[in-house]
């Protein structure tokens, strides 16, 4: 990629003077990530249980 072009583009991005993301947004994202992580761990735990333990059929 042409470095001069990339540099111009980065300059334009910086010139936009966008405010930094706020703390509330960060808290929301971290909360979502926390729950997704718990769900992932529960899912992994569930998957690790042998299927026979869930089998409630009366077949001998």
């Amino acid at each position: 990629m042409n470095d001069d072009e990339q540099q111009t583009f980065e300059y334009v991005l910086d010139s936009l003077d966008i405010p930094e993301p706020d703390q509330t947004t960060k808290n929301k994202i971290m909360k979502a990530v926390y729950f997704l992580n718990v769900a992932k761990e529960v899912g992994a735990f569930h998957a690790s249980i042998p299927r026979t333990l869930f089998d409630d059929s009366n077949e001998e």
């Binding site: 936009l16 930094e20 926390y34």
Partner: peptide
Amino acid sequence: GNINAFEFLYDRYTSKVLKRCYFICLNL
């Protein structure tokens, strides 16, 4: 599984991601 590390990754890049989103949609 160390989600605290995610916070650091977020802090490192979030303003860059926000700028890029803004560039495309031009609405804060």
